[in-house]
Amino acid sequence: MQYIRLTRRIALLGAVATLLSACATKFRSYDGPQVTRLRLFKGRRLLVLDGAEGALRTYPIGLGFAPIGHKQFEGDGRTPEGSYVIDRRNPDSRFHLSIGISYPNAQDRDFAAAEGRSPGGDIFIHGGPRPGIDPVDKRDWTAGCISVTDRQIEEIYSMVRNGTPIDIYS
């Protein structure tokens, strides 16, 4: 009799563990109002997701390791300023999840070319930092990207679609 009870408990715990692991995914669903625009305020370290009726969510952010000024060249550690769009998604990001920003635009490329340099690229909104790899004691630690927590990027990733405009202010 005890053997049957023990077997049932083990089976029940296995079922619960399976159910919980199925819920533990980084991909969330979102069925709320459409995000129509993102606004990023570098000086305030704030990302705002706007809908048709106003702000839907706000998030504190981290920036590139040189947070002041517009990104001009590869390796400068700055986060771009200006008008861009969300143009790609990376479900296999080294930083949990990430959504890409269309930097550099034509003006950014022209400026860098006139200076004989590369404008850089691969600017994302992503999770992180990765413990033991990225500095966790600094707010602005990326190479020019925008960082939020892993939980926050899961929410942002589910809410924001490719083609959504993003305005980045100083």
Rank of each mutant, 00 (worst) to 15 (best):
C23D: 00
G69Y: 11
N105A: 02
I168C: 04
F73T: 11
L12M: 05
N162F: 03
G64I: 07
E74N: 03
T79M: 11
D108T: 11
A113P: 08
I168F: 07
Y84N: 01
P60H: 13
A106W: 07
R5N: 12
Y30Q: 06
I99G: 00
C23R: 10
G116A: 09
L47H: 01
Y3F: 11
A17N: 04
R5T: 09
E53H: 13
L40T: 11
S98P: 00
G77M: 05
G43F: 06
E81N: 05
D150N: 15
V35S: 03
T164E: 02
G75Q: 06
L97T: 02
I133Q: 12
D31H: 15
I123L: 07
D50Y: 10
A114Q: 15
T7H: 00
D110T: 12
N105M: 07
P119D: 05
L47F: 06
K26S: 09
M159C: 03
Y169I: 03
V136G: 15
A11N: 03
T79H: 09
I99F: 04
G132E: 04
A113Q: 15
G121P: 07
R109F: 03
L40R: 02
K71T: 09
D108E: 12
M1N: 13
H126R: 00
I61F: 00
D110V: 06
T79R: 09
A112G: 02
I101Y: 10
A52R: 14
R37Y: 07
T142M: 06
P60Q: 13
T36N: 00
L47R: 05
C145F: 10
V48N: 00
S98T: 11
Y84Q: 06
P104K: 09
D150Y: 08
G127T: 05
L12R: 03
R117W: 08
L47Y: 00
F111E: 12
F41W: 08
L12D: 09
I123E: 10
N162A: 12
G75L: 07
L38G: 03
A24P: 00
I10V: 12
I166T: 01
A22F: 02
G62C: 11
G100E: 11
T164R: 01
E115W: 13
R161H: 10
P60L: 06
P135V: 04
R44Y: 03
T164Y: 03
M159N: 07
I61Q: 01
A52N: 10
R151Y: 04
G163C: 03
E155P: 04
A106L: 13
S147Q: 08
